[in-house]
Design a protein around this nucleic acid. Structure first.
Lengths: 196, 196, 196, 196
DNA sequence: TATGAATGAGGATTCATTCAT
DNA sequence: GATGAATGAATCCTCATTCAT
């Protein structure tokens, strides 16, 4: 999570620093065609910077991917209970969680995470951590929303895992299978499964 | 869907014909490192055939992927009701569906489908069709298992879509997020959501 | 020491096989400008082959150097006493050794050996082995030529080492220092040092 | 031959000025890996100075090499007869010459001189001049040590040339051939060749 | 059908050098 | 003087693909 402030140099007429433009271009291209199919030359061209500059900031191509994952998929450091759980309203609670989703990642970044997770360890690890985070929040939200602890713990975990999967992968589920899975509808489904 | 029978040549000590060995090698490699990162030379080496032979069978590299998807992700032509739905037992019905899953695809092929779906139209289409098939079967199974039509149609569709997603992507969900989502448990969850 | 016979293909109008032409070109260029300053593209151009072919035969640039050293600096497998030592004529014996020098290496190869020995282990090792071979032959020749064992053993070794150095490095001594050191004259000098 | 005194700047915690540190780093690196294989960036890093500063002091990379050769291989301006020749003791005289060797060059600089002489005219010239200087001194020393002029002039020159070669290249002889050639022993050998 | 040499476009990466600050 | 971002030519190497045998 870089916070270095970069000054606008005279060589930067676009007003965004070169490093950021490189990451922007890479994000769009990796999402569209995949990491391997995207050449560094193309990233540079789309970013409007000379080829060499990509390597000035990112010594290896893989470092571009790593930087994207590091800097653009940060899990917000929300207080655990930032999403106010409404006792008796698990569906609404999950829906709110979905909306205040802690994953600060563009649809493009999600596609990248998803696609490259299987082949690049660091990406896979990050995706695993994100999934775990969402899972834990969902479980906690459900526990708070269902104070009577109706429904055993095991089922609650299955519910949380299912919801996390749908939430994280919705982007890809939609694109790959051509079918939208609406998180709100799933939230409602799950609430029914757990509730009265 | 090829069914051509190939004779065993004298150069084929493994007892499998060259074309099959090429596809086997490609399946393993594409799953492990992705299509773009796998060279035709490597496929040939792993298959134990000369480089030129790959192009004898598959004029272009992409044809290897297409053949894999065509020949190794076939949706079985099951009769619609091959999975006997037990009225009153939606959970069991879904579980049986999961077990008699119509997708004849190795874990490796599922990873390939999944990974390349976003960048190769033909793969994406195939995945979409598979997902649709599973979705339709799940919906039909639920309709039969819940004859009273309790729960409206919309919720039933959400349930079928969720179940299809978990079923198709379980391979990847497990691998990517490090968390198993047991189809049987999800079946039970969904049954609760729809049932009494 | 390759002995593979290469057929003359129709694509080889020069009548020398491509691999040999690549090595010829590399030998000349490495000797003239050094290994690092010689690009693979230039080798290919001078050899009259496409760039890619260099890497077909030599997966890495360094392999070209290694092949040169392996195949073009072979120590002849002469019987130990192939150079007939004339008792009483150490000078003549050394001169004959110099002329029937066991190092089958062009002046170009000697310059390459010399220059790259310090930075490429395999080259350095080969040079060391060559030097050792020449040293041992010179010592043996002197022992045979001076049967009375006049002059102690230590001095004889110094003589052999000095002669080996002059013999192996004459190419470079001449070029680098602009001064020829005639092996025959050194042979005569050494004979005087050891003889009556 | 620079003699400019450089002040110690506040950015120079090592207490050596930047220019000197650059040359020190270059000397070590050129000796270890060769001129071509050493990037200016690496020199800067090893010297602990920013990349730009290298080009401030040395407008071109080659200027670093030239400066090293100019400033660090100086032939001492000894009076011709600084090495007292002892008539009748040529071995001792040569040994003393070797010890009071006029070449002020570190082992590293000798390796550089040696390696780059063949490809960089200025280095080659300097090496030639050094070799000539040592040769002339050795010849003069021998003439003085052997007043009777026994041994003809031609043999004396061969002796001087051989001794100069051993002296100048001992560093490399040892390193490359793994065999030490002791200058004192060679001096003694040569004395025998010329003396009674 | 089988084989591997041949081809050249393209890709990642390096690097000397410039220059605004 | 000091700094490091910027530049683009050049380098090593990969690879799909062709083709003569």
């Amino acid at each position: 999570m870089r916070a270095v402030r970069r000054r606008r140099s005279s060589r930067d007429p676009q007003g965004t620093d070169a490093r950021t433009r490189i990451l922007d271009a890479a994000e769009a291209l990796f999402a569209e065609r995949g990491y391997d199919a995207t050449s560094t030359a193309r990233i540079a061209r789309q970013a409007g910077v000379p080829k060499g500059l990509v390597f000035h900031y990112f010594p290896q191509k893989i470092d571009v991917l790593v930087a994207l994952v590091d800097e653009r998929t940060a899990v917000e450091e929300l207080p655990e209970d930032a999403v106010e759980a409404l006792p008796g309203d698990p569906a609404g609670t999950l829906s709110r969680l979905a909306r205040r989703f802690p994953l600060r990642a563009s649809p493009a970044m999600r596609r990248i995470l998803f696609r490259e997770a299987g082949t690049h360890r660091s990406v896979g690890e990050r995706l695993g951590r994100l999934n775990g985070e969402v899972f834990r929040r969902a479980r906690r939200a459900l526990e708070l929303a269902l104070p009577g602890a109706r429904g055993d713990q095991a089922r609650l975990e299955v519910a949380a895992a299912t919801f996390a999967a749908v939430l994280i992968y919705q982007e890809n589920l939609a694109q790959l299978s051509g079918q939208h899975v609406d998180p709100d509808a799933v939230a409602e489904l799950i609430a029914h499964a757990l509730g009265a």
